[in-house]
Amino acid sequence: MFIIFLELLCVVPFQMEEEERKCKAAIEEAEKQYSEISSEIKDLDIKSKQFEELEESYLSISDDISPGRKRCSFGQDRSFPGCLSNVQVEWDEINAAWGQAALLLHTMAQYFSPKFQYRIKIHPMGSYPRVTDINNNTYELFGPVNLFWSTRYDKAMTWFLTCLQEFAEFAISLDRENNVPPEKSLKLPYKIDIRW
């Protein structure tokens, strides 16, 4: 009996050490999983905040651009003198302005044809002007447009500005040919920076 008791005394501590090792391994595994889950939660929190910011940005844009209206707000720098922020401009007015600008650019380009290479065609059609690019694709330069359907309108504006820039460069070179003094030569009031 004494021998059995001694064997139990030797076996029990060994079993306890084994149990302790298993518990420590289980604790380490749980801590590792906790760390991974915490990291995933932090990532999800960051993505959630980014999503909320995008949603707020979208909502503010959709408030500013609504069917039939476009808000004229050019920021604090007042890049365009005389424009008041938060002024509602109707699409009819915007379209009429584009129509007038298209008519003017078209008329000037036609007047200097064939000397001015008129690669981009401007089609002044009242309040519904269009622009044909160098690949013969035609885009509408009138609205209303919304956030999701503005690509064609954006391309029309970009091609219009490209044509305006080309005409300005042509007019400046014409002034140089005719020895017009630099202070009397054509100079656009704002730089045209087109990024494709």
Rank of each mutant, 00 (worst) to 15 (best):
155 K>P: 02
152 R>T: 13
119 R>W: 05
122 I>V: 09
157 M>F: 15
137 N>Y: 09
154 D>F: 14
141 L>V: 07
146 N>C: 12
147 L>A: 11
141 L>G: 04
127 S>Q: 13
152 R>L: 14
145 V>G: 01
142 F>G: 08
131 V>K: 06
128 Y>G: 08
127 S>C: 13
129 P>D: 03
116 F>T: 01
156 A>I: 05
135 N>A: 10
117 Q>S: 08
148 F>N: 09
115 K>Q: 09
144 P>M: 08
143 G>L: 12
156 A>N: 07
115 K>E: 10
122 I>N: 01
150 S>T: 12
154 D>C: 11
150 S>V: 13
142 F>M: 09
123 H>C: 13
155 K>T: 01
127 S>E: 14
128 Y>W: 14
125 M>N: 14
122 I>Y: 06
160 F>Q: 00
145 V>I: 11
143 G>S: 11
158 T>S: 04
128 Y>S: 15
138 T>P: 02
156 A>F: 01
117 Q>A: 01
149 W>L: 15
119 R>S: 10
140 E>H: 07
137 N>E: 05
121 K>M: 00
126 G>W: 12
123 H>N: 12
120 I>C: 00
119 R>F: 07
147 L>T: 10
141 L>I: 08
123 H>P: 02
130 R>M: 14
145 V>D: 06
116 F>V: 06
138 T>F: 03
129 P>M: 08
126 G>A: 11
159 W>I: 02
115 K>F: 10
141 L>E: 06
117 Q>H: 08
119 R>I: 02
148 F>S: 15
145 V>W: 04
119 R>P: 06
125 M>H: 15
154 D>Q: 11
118 Y>H: 04
148 F>K: 13
127 S>T: 15
142 F>S: 07
149 W>I: 15
134 I>H: 01
138 T>Q: 09
116 F>P: 04
138 T>N: 04
155 K>F: 05
127 S>G: 14
136 N>M: 13
140 E>D: 14
147 L>R: 08
145 V>H: 09
137 N>I: 03
148 F>C: 10
129 P>S: 11
115 K>N: 12
124 P>C: 03
153 Y>N: 07
120 I>S: 02
138 T>C: 07
139 Y>G: 01
153 Y>V: 02
161 L>A: 03
132 T>K: 00
139 Y>N: 04
145 V>S: 05
125 M>D: 15
150 S>I: 13
159 W>D: 04
157 M>A: 12
115 K>H: 15
157 M>Q: 12
145 V>A: 09
144 P>E: 11
147 L>V: 13
117 Q>W: 03
120 I>W: 00
147 L>W: 13
144 P>L: 12
116 F>R: 04
144 P>V: 08
128 Y>Q: 12
130 R>P: 06
132 T>E: 01
153 Y>H: 09
156 A>T: 03
158 T>C: 10
141 L>P: 06
151 T>V: 11
149 W>P: 07
149 W>S: 14
122 I>A: 00
144 P>C: 10
125 M>V: 15
